[in-house]
């Protein structure tokens, strides 16, 4: 028992590496926030563009979405981080992580928003168009407000799943939680930093999961 505590809950190790883990938490929060903003916005923009049903553009969107959803994010991260310097483009590791996770989230978000748009009854479009609203005005004022509400529960789940992938940044040296924890673990030869990392993730993501649960009930939509 004491050996177990010594390995996972070692006091001195905890104190020594706490600042590093806290720094990792800040970096993880930074990544999560920027990824959520750019990923969801890009996904929404793509879904809106898709609503115009221009065949060639929609084919491109579908290819983008399917490729990004099919590839493991780690593959993309490595490909971009180790591939781009070979063509003379040096992108900082934080930016690579931001870019890749944003694109992945955008792909899933686009599909979720698109499903929402499709589920709005045709009568809503017809009613709005019959009062003289343009296609875009109908989309913005009538269809999207309803579609976004429908999208909130699945989008929350998907967003949590993808922002957790910030941990993948460790393989390209982004100093987020897992990166700090593994470094500390190898210096100290003790698993306590990893346990600290796990706890740090819980501290960050349990509230987010709870928020997701709240949003799901809040946005449960009474349909007329």
């Amino acid at each position: 028992m004491s050996r177990f505590l010594d390995t996972f809950f070692n006091g001195p190790v905890f104190e020594r590496y706490l600042p590093a883990i806290l720094h990792g938490m800040v970096v993880t929060i930074e990544i999560a926030v920027v990824v959520v903003i750019t990923g969801i916005l890009l996904g929404l923009v793509l879904a809106v563009v898709r609503a115009f049903r221009v065949l060639a553009i929609n084919a491109l969107i579908v290819v983008f979405v399917d490729v990004l959803r099919a590839l493991p994010p780690l593959v993309l991260i490595l490909l971009v981080y180790f591939g781009l310097p070979n063509v003379g483009v040096n992108v900082p590791s934080f930016a690579v992580l931001w870019l890749v996770l944003s694109l992945v989230l955008a792909a899933f978000a686009e599909e979720i928003f698109w499903a929402g748009i499709l589920s709005i009854p045709k009568g809503q479009w017809e009613a709005a168009r019959s009062t003289g609203l343009t296609f875009l005005a109908t989309l913005v004022h009538v269809v999207l407000p309803q579609a976004v509400r429908l999208a909130v529960p699945p989008l929350t789940n998907r967003t949590i799943a993808i922002t957790k992938n910030a941990a993948l940044g460790t393989v390209i040296g982004v100093s987020e939680i897992l990166n700090q924890a593994t470094a500390a673990q190898s210096f100290s030869g003790n698993a306590t930093p990893l346990m600290m990392g796990a706890i740090a993730y819980l501290i960050l993501f349990v509230p987010v999961v709870a928020l997701g649960r709240f949003l799901e009930t809040r946005f449960a939509w009474r349909r007329a």
């Binding site: 009568g123 009613a127 709005a128 309803q146 349909r223 007329a224």
Partner: peptide
């Protein structure tokens, strides 16, 4: 319209 088609939101 037959089905009213009011905007529910």
């Amino acid at each position: 319209f037959q089905s009213f088609n009011l905007y529910p939101h």
